[in-house]
Amino acid sequence: MIIVDNKAVEDVLQMIAPYKKVLVAGCYGCVTVCLAGGEKEVGLLASQIRMARQKEGNPIEVLEQTVERQCDKEYLVKFQDNARDVEAIVSLACGIGIQYLAEVYEPVPVFPGVNTQFLGANRDVGKWEEFCMACGECVLDKTGGICPIARCSKSLLNGPCGGSQFGKCEVSKDIDCAWQLIYDRLKSLGQLDKMAEYIPAKNWHRDKGPRKLVKEELTLERD
C-alpha cells in the first residue's frame, strides 16, 4: 500500500490563496486505508480551509468529494461536475492520483494535500512502516523475505555495515538493523548459507527513463 501523510495546512492555504472556490478531492484507495485522504480527512481539511479563510476575511467556498481511486480515469470522471465548478482542486490522493487528476482536468490547477511517503504496511492503527522501494528486481528470495533495500538505511545488499549494534541501526535506535532481521530469519529458516551468497550490485542508473509496463497480451491494441 502507498503510505501518505497530510501536508501542513499552511502550505495548502498558500497554494490556494488566489482562489475563491476549490474542491477537496479524496480517494477511497490507499489514502483512506492510511487515514490521510478518505472522506473524513476531506471533511476535516475542508473545514480547516473554510475557517482559516474566514478568519483572514477572505472567505472561500470549498466543495468535498471522494471517489473510489484517483489512479484510474474512469473514477476521475466522477469529479467532472465539481471540478468544472471550481477554480482549483486540492487532492488528498497519493502522488499518482494527484498527477492523474491534474492531467484529466487540465487546465484546472490541482494541488497536493498530502506528501506521498513510501510503500509500506500498516502494523497497527496509526503505525506504518516502509517495506518496499519498487526497485524492480526483487531479492526477497535471498534475504528471508526481508527487503534490504527498503529496510536497511543504506540499502546494502550484502550484509550489514559496521554501524549495526545490538540489532539496531546506527541511524536511530528505533530502527531495526535489516541485516540483523535477515540473519535471524534465515537462521530460523535453516538457510544461513544464503548469507554467503553474493548479491550483485543493482544498476540504479535510470538508463531507460521513467518506467513503463506494457503487457502486450493484455492490451486492447491490435498488432
Binding site: 477511497y28 484507495g29 483512506t32 486505508v33 492510511c34 487515514l35 478518505g38 472522506e39 471522494t66 500498516n122 497497527d124 492503527v125
Partner: peptide
C-alpha cells in the same frame, strides 16, 4: 461503497 476495508474499525 464507502468501505475501504482498511481494518481501522476492526482494530479500534
Amino acid at each position: 461503497e464507502q468501505c475501504a476495508v482498511c481494518l481501522t474499525c476492526y482494530r479500534c
